[in-house]
Amino acid sequence: MRFGLSYVGISTSCLGDLTRGESVDGIHDMGGQHGWGSVAIDPDEKVFASDWEARAFAMGAMSAGLSGTNLDAFRHALERLHPLEYLADGYYGRWLACAELLLVDHGVLPAGAVDARAQNLLGNEVSEPTETSGEKPQYERNGSGSIRSIEDPHGFAVGDRVLARNMHREGHHRMPAYIRGHTGTVVALRPAAVLPDSTAHFTAEDAQHVYTVAFSSTDLWGSTAEPYTLNIDLFESYMEPTS
């Protein structure tokens, strides 16, 4: 699926300083949205539709390491893209834009360097910026990957009824809007993991217990919803006991 900016009928030049702070209620939080059309499987799909997408994947995959950041910061970078840019060049277009964002933010590349080089590749002679700003984050990691062993006792047990907190945190987190404020039941305990809210912003790991919580479709979407169960993984601080 591809969305050009002209496809959505908006000229980016008229958007001015339209930015949205760091709110996480962005284009990426797609669960439950209407209007995206139907879903079809392409049985002949290749892993990469074109060579540039393969290059974008590889550089995107390496960008967290090259910028001294992490997977959660990469996901947050996806969320920080302007909503039009999130859609403009498809999935690997997003990865390319994220790689650039992390590498510029953390002082590996000068701002505007990629655009300037691209213009030069197109034969338009422009000067390329040389000054970087920003630096690699300094923070402590207690291991590789995201899973951790922690001593804290579990706050919840299988069978507990819990409320998905109606939280509206700035910055990165992993609580989709469609779950917030709803009550579900803990169905499984999962390994503790670093809290993306913290690691994406390089403040700490804040590893927490993770739970799979089941919600009824009619609780989420009303009495006319299809009957099914929605299972989702929630960090302990995203949950509170029901009274």
């Binding site: 669960g31 989709p176 993991a193 099914y228 169960t229 929630l234």
Partner: peptide, 9 residues
Amino acid sequence: TVWDSSAEN
């Protein structure tokens, strides 16, 4: 049952 992979599982 629909599973939304929102953490590292």
